[in-house]
Amino acid sequence: MTAILTATLVIAAVGALAALALAVADRYLAVREDPRIGLVTAALPGANCGGCGFAGCGDYARALVAGTAAPGACAPGGDAANSEIAKILGVAAEATERRVALVKCCGTRSEAIRVGDYNGICDCAAAAATAGGDKGCRYGCLGYGACANVCPKHAIRIEDGLAIVDKRLCVGCGKCVSVCPRRLIELVPASATIHVLCNNPVRGPEVTKVCGVGCIGCRLCEKNSGGKEAGHFTFNGFLAHVNYENPPADATLVAKCPRKCIKEDPHFEAGV
């Protein structure tokens, strides 16, 4: 009987002491946090992709509440998250369009030549620094997967020497854009369907020497989409570029491109 009593008393005493310690800790050691931080964090998608420039969603939320960051930097969350955050913080939300990564190259191994057999670490920057890269086109995708390696959503895969983005998974964080040594990944509006998949601005004869599907700047796409006034395309040297402020929607442009470098929802998975 005494044994049971002693045990009960000891445990009760330990419990009481612990409760007291907790109470004291709560009183004196508590970290006061703005309750809005929790709300904002909850409103963010939790992808922790880092695309906003902060180390994860929590960090961005703290910066938002502290007023050192503006809402709208979260690409994965999109409009929904941004407007909710704006509501929590009591500021006006600006509508943004969901953007996704586009690899502006379609020179697969069967379309673009390789000038050498690269032997070394599997990284685009390392390959690009070795004799300028093994791809004949010095603007094209090397296909060693630097973008795929940094993608927090595993939305990029390498197929036939070319990076391919899955539109459904891409959250538009832009990590791949900055890691690509060829700088050929661009964030484009998810709604745009017609794209020029080439990044080589040099003259036609130079392009055709190294790639079967490189843009030569013939401007047929511009002509077929209503001319210069329509403003669906811009040109950089001998390279056509879709004007994403005013993207073309005419799918027949694809068949009309003599170099076959205009594609409709090209690298994206079907059924989006």
Binding site: S110, E111, A112, I113, R114, V115, G116, D117, Y118, N119, G120, I121, A126, A129, T130, A131, D134, G136, T208, K209, V210, C211, G212
Partner: peptide, 15 residues
């Protein structure tokens, strides 16, 4: 279509 390859393809590696 793949453009015609000119010359031999050498090994490319870092030193």
């Amino acid at each position: 279509m793949l453009p015609k390859q000119t010359g031999e393809r050498y090994l490319l590696s870092s030193s």
